[in-house]
C-alpha cells in the first residue's frame, strides 16, 4: 500500500453553539494520494466547509475524534501558519476583507513567512514584484488590485481570483478550494480552474468542494466523494458528477440512512 499524502480517518468535530455542542463532522474518512485532485459534493449543511476549516486549523471547531495527517505529519497538532508552511492552502468560500492592509504587502509578508518556514531565502521587493506580476497577468488581474486593501471593495470574482493569486504565490502541495466557483461567471471560472490545473503535478493534490458539476468540467477530478450529515457516504470516479447533476443526492442519502 502506498503511503498516503492526505489521510483523514474517523474525523469528528463540533462547534460550540453557546450552551450546546453541535456535532458537524461525524467520522470522515478520506484518502487523497499525491498528485490527485478529489472533489467533495453534497447538500448544504453536510459539513463540507467545516471539514476545510478543521483541516486548515480554525479554532472555532473542536476536534473530538479521529486523525488527519498530511505528508505523514499530524495536521491537527499544528498551528494554522504551520500547516500553511507545510504546504496546505485553503481558498476561502468567503475571502475575508482586511481594511488598512495593502494587498501587495500582505502577499509579500505571507510569501516570505512561508519561505522562511520552508528554509528558503526571502524574496526582496523587486523579486517579489516580478513574481507577482507574472501571476496577475495569468489571472487577468490588474496591478491596481495589488495596491488596494485586501479584498476590500473587490467584486465576488475579484476576491476569488485574489485567492487563486495567493495560492499560486504560496506554492502549496495540498490545496482545498471551498466553493471557489460560487459567484463566478464563466470566464472567471475558467481562469480560476486554469490556476488550479497549472499546479497539477505528481507532488500536488487538491480537494475541490463544490455544489455544482460545472466547475468539475474545468477541473476534472480523479475521484468524487458525496458528503452528507458529516460523513462521506459515497465515492466514485469523475462520471459521478453528471449522475449527481441529473439525479441529485436523494439516492445516496436513502442508501446511507
Amino acid at each position: 500500500m502506498s503511503k498516503q499524502f492526505v489521510s483523514i480517518n474517523g474525523l469528528c468535530a463540533r462547534i460550540d453553539d453557546g450552551e450546546a455542542h453541535k456535532e458537524i463532522l461525524r467520522g470522515v474518512d478520506l484518502e487523497i494520494p499525491a498528485g490527485e485532485v478529489h472533489a467533495i459534493m453534497g447538500p448544504n449543511g453536510s459539513g463540507k466547509s467545516t471539514l476545510s476549516y478543521v483541516l486548515a486549523g480554525r479554532e472555532d471547531y473542536e476536534v473530538t475524534g479521529g486523525t488527519a495527517t498530511f505528508k505523514g505529519q499530524d495536521l491537527l497538532a499544528l498551528e494554522p501558519e504551520e500547516r500553511a508552511a507545510l504546504g496546505l492552502f485553503l481558498a476561502f468560500q468567503t475571502p475575508v476583507e482586511l481594511p488598512g492592509v495593502n494587498n501587495a504587502n500582505f502577499l509579500r509578508t505571507a510569501v516570505n513567512a512561508v519561505r522562511r518556514a520552508r528554509g528558503m531565502d526571502e524574496l526582496d521587493a523587486v523579486a517579489f514584484l516580478k513574481a507577482v506580476r507574472k501571476e496577475t497577468k495569468h489571472l487577468s488581474m490588474s496591478d491596481e488590485m495589488l495596491k488596494r486593501n485586501v479584498n476590500v471593495g473587490f467584486s465576488g470574482g475579484e476576491k476569488k481570483r485574489n485567492e487563486v493569486l495567493q495560492m499560486r504565490m504560496l506554492q502549496p502541495s495540498f490545496a482545498i478550494l471551498d466553493e471557489t466557483d460560487s459567484g463566478l461567471d464563466i470566464d472567471a471560472l475558467r481562469i480560476v480552474a486554469e490556476g488550479v490545473n497549472s499546479l497539477r503535478s505528481p507532488d500536488f493534490s487538491a480537494l475541490v468542494i463544490t455544489h455544482h458539476q460545472r466547475l468539475l468540467d474545468y477541473i476534472v477530478p480523479d475521484r468524487i466523494h458525496v458528503m452528507a450529515k458529516g460523513r462521506i457516504i459515497h465515492s466514485g470516479g469523475p462520471e459521478l458528477a453528471r449522475q449527481l447533476e441529473a439525479q441529485g443526492y436523494a439516492q445516496f442519502l436513502s442508501e446511507a440512512a
Binding site: A56, G57, R58, E59, E79, P80, E81, R83, A84, A85, F89, L90, F92, P95, V96, L98, F106, T109, A110, A113, V114, A117, Q166, L170
Partner: peptide
Amino acid sequence: FYLRSRGI
C-alpha cells in the same frame, strides 16, 4: 485566521 492560514 485568514492571515495565519496564509502562513503568517
